[in-house]
């Protein structure tokens, strides 16, 4: 297979999954810069494994698992160094700003909604990574429990327990700051 054919095959296989993968990267990292790096690294790895990728029945699931493992490996690498990446482009700056633009027809409602989402963003930042990721994948992205098990390798029972604790903690934080009553 020529280089051009390799590229065409690769693009055909990954293209249908790019949006979902980008969202997953964003949910895992919570920062635009890191999400883009993780997304890019996944595509590089996937291209290197193109011979395997063409044989896989569900490339979307496979790609998601590889991305999750890359994310975990990266976390461990920096933990070993007692370092972590400085957060850049926090959601409040990147995501919610764009979201606010959708509310131009009713600025008052939009601002109130944006403020509630900012508080949710801050509350999510108080959760552990494992709780934050589970609640975002399940409640925001609509992953099923079994899909989260397949993605993370964490048994469904543990996923359910983390989901319950994450929701409870979010409720406590958001009640305490008056976002919900």
């Amino acid at each position: 297979m020529s280089s051009a054919q390799h590229s065409a095959t690769f693009e055909r296989l990954v293209q249908p999954h790019l949006d979902r993968l980008y969202r997953l990267a964003w949910r895992l990292t919570g920062s635009k810069a890191e999400a883009e790096d993780l997304f890019q690294e996944l595509l590089i790895k996937a291209y290197q494994k193109l011979d395997d990728l063409v044989e896989i029945d569900e490339p979307g699931s496979w790609l998601s698992r590889v991305m999750y493992n890359l994310f975990i490996d990266e976390q461990r690498r920096f933990a070993r160094r007692r370092m972590h990446l400085v957060e850049e482009g926090q959601l409040a700056g990147d995501g919610l700003q764009g979201f606010a633009g959708d509310e131009r027809d009713n600025p008052a409602t939009g601002n109130e909604r944006l403020e509630r989402l900012r508080r949710l963003d801050a509350a999510l930042g108080q959760l552990s990574d494992e709780h934050r990721i589970v609640v975002l994948l399940h409640d925001t992205e609509g992953y099923k429990l079994v899909e989260i098990e397949e993605l993370t390798g964490v048994p469904v029972g543990t996923v359910k327990s983390r989901l319950h604790r994450a929701r409870t903690r979010l409720r406590e934080i958001l009640v305490a700051d008056g976002t919900i009553s």
Binding site: L43, I44, L117, L136, T140
Partner: peptide, 30 residues
Amino acid sequence: EVLELLQDYPAPAPDRGFYERALVRATHEG
């Protein structure tokens, strides 16, 4: 209410042309 907020929680779209650049870089770097 928490669930409604979570369902409303946005994820930004990538910059224009990001996917195309990422694919080109992946094939080159890979």
